[in-house]
Design a protein around this nucleic acid. Structure first.
Lengths: 338, 338
DNA sequence: TCAAGGCAGGCAAACGGTTGCCATTCATGC
DNA sequence: GCATGAATGGCAACCGTTTGCCTGCCTTGA
């Protein structure tokens, strides 16, 4: 039925309508709109005016089909519900919008397999991708990077542009902080095993403690959710350690809750340090001493790097940006009990 | 350079490659893949097998160009950083992925203008949209709904399918709760003026209080962020009221912080009720009594409604789903001081 | 035996842009 | 006066699918 058609698809304005209205050929219209300088200034003005008047909107798909450019960037996160990503999503969202790109959000559910599957499925619908804390192996990630422009966040791999948060220096600060408070038995509460930053944090804790001749222990791995906090707290209590650094704030806050339930004083008996300074770290109880990571900025930087590569067509000197982290001392850390 | 080309665009497998490999025409391949039943079973099997072998991935854009279907749904939120949306994003993300749809996230930055602008720009790249707490006027929203399949969340408009959280009943529960604790002076801390749910909550507070012959007051409007909590708390203290219901948890948590700073006991001197039970409400200090809204479920339901409409082509009896809310009593509410 | 109708497959025209190549015009320099 | 070449615009092929229409064949029933 004609009626239905006109309702469902009101026949949008195309480049040909503009061509007809101006008397120019469609190709000229196309160039005027997407390649200024290739046509006469007067012509362009005329065309642009008519385009605006007809409220012309270029068809993304048609454009993508020939030119290959989709003006869309995928942002892959391992778990949308993890507040850690909120800042990242915000950062990428803003930067992409500013550049006129669309933001395709993909939740990889902590699965490297799903990650590469989605990516191969979307390869032609996106110009590039931001991979936040990818669960892919180094080899796979590097291979992917040769097929598709991508920037990794919190992941350092040869041949892949990346933005990483300088956890080492942050963890070192946290360690110094705890040591200066008299703690000599620091435990690392480990996150998921396939997480690159988990390893990075653990290694820098070892290094930092070693500089003071202190041994460190590691508990876990624990899934990076608040729920794991209970098990983590129980395990920690068992070790009789007086301080811990948790893989992330989610885990730390979960531990806080459990420690309180069990009547363990924080920071009286145990000091807890989190990582990421995510939403909530400043209003949980006690408020959490944590490693502030400029994750929103990381998102913006990642997008900038990606767009730079997309536009300059220069293969770019594969590089990585390292963003500083710093310790925010709040209520969850205090002098070691004697 | 040929080299560069082959690197950047490795020439993906198309329907024609399959046609050539199998000896069938491209059209038959197309039908075998997207309209089974239209071709002979044996033919289809053969084609599907070859397609898999060649790891064929259909080109979204080419498909969208002719069929108009993009298998993409836009999710518009007024502010990605508001934790309230996390659940929604999660819900929509999961449901869309399950159905094989892509999830286009759009932040409208609390601006109705940006909202409709983005939507008109994307109209041909999406099959439909989920509009969470739209800032658009009723008229505009209704008009939009005639041009594009959409489902509104937390917004009730004639002629627009919607999913709403039953705040009225929840606010009523909260009011009863406060009254039963002996409070007779309840203040509503208002959120943004252009928010539909803000009005809905305010109205149901009036109604609930009226049933007990109690007057209520309203303070604000306050922007729906944690930062506004300070101003809100100060204003509240000034009124000498003993209880308040805040537009949302963000505002409530902000108030909690400020009240603590100013030495006002919660719930000793003032009881605070939030709305949404967002991430953090259960670990802030004191933990927040709040209206739990099944927002993730709302996201799923919204997607289901939208997909049902997209697939059944039936214009659908424009309807709305109302999801129940319930009060979660935590530490921030207590008996009225005497 | 033949008309009618269903099934399976092919042809070719879209969909809405982009882009390589060609034609025209006009200024420039010798 | 003529070759040269830059600037500008048009032509038409193409991107990868979908889909309306057509054809040939086989089945069915009178």
């Amino acid at each position: 039925m004609d009626n239905r058609d006109s309702v469902k698809r009101p026949r949008r304005v195309t480049i040909n309508d503009i061509a007809e209205a101006t008397g120019f050929a469609a190709s000229t219209v196309s160039r005027a709109l997407s390649r200024p300088g290739r046509v006469n200034a007067a012509t362009r003005e005329r065309i642009v005016a008519v385009a605006r008047e007809l409220s012309y909107v270029p068809n993304t798909h048609a454009r993508a089909l020939t030119s290959g450019r989709t003006e869309t960037v995928a942002v892959l996160v391992s778990d949308v519900t993890n507040p850690f990503y909120f800042g990242l999503i915000r950062g990428t969202q803003h930067q992409l919008k500013a550049a006129g790109y669309a933001h395709l959000l993909i939740d990889t559910e902590n699965s490297g397999e799903l990650e590469s599957h989605m990516l191969s499925k979307m390869r032609q619908s996106i110009d590039g991708a931001i991979m936040a804390t990818s669960r892919l192996s180094h080899r796979l990630l590097a291979a992917l990077a040769t097929e598709l422009p991508l920037v990794a966040v919190n992941r350092m791999v040869r041949g892949v542009e990346s933005v990483v948060l300088d956890s080492p220096s942050g963890v070192a600060q946290a360690t110094e902080h705890l040591i200066s408070l008299g703690h000599s038995d620091i435990v690392y509460m480990s996150g998921p095993e396939n997480s690159w930053s988990n390893e990075a944090r653990w290694r820098s804790l070892i290094a930092a403690a070693a500089r003071h001749g202190l041994p460190v222990r590691r508990l876990g791995p624990f899934p990076a959710g608040r729920m794991s906090g209970s098990a983590a707290a129980d395990a920690l209590i068992n070790t009789r350690a007086t301080a811990c650094i948790a893989f992330n704030d989610l885990l730390a806050i979960g531990m806080l809750t459990r420690l309180r339930e069990r009547g363990v004083g924080v920071p009286g008996e145990i000091s807890v340090v989190g990582c990421d300074d995510m939403f909530g770290a400043d209003f949980c109880h006690p408020t959490l001493t944590t490693l502030a990571a400029p994750i929103e900025q990381a998102g913006r930087v990642a997008v900038s790097m990606l767009l730079a590569r997309l536009n300059d067509s220069a293969p770019a000197t594969r590089q990585s940006a390292v963003l500083p982290t710093h310790l925010i001392v709040r209520e969850s850390t205090g002098p070691a009990p004697r």
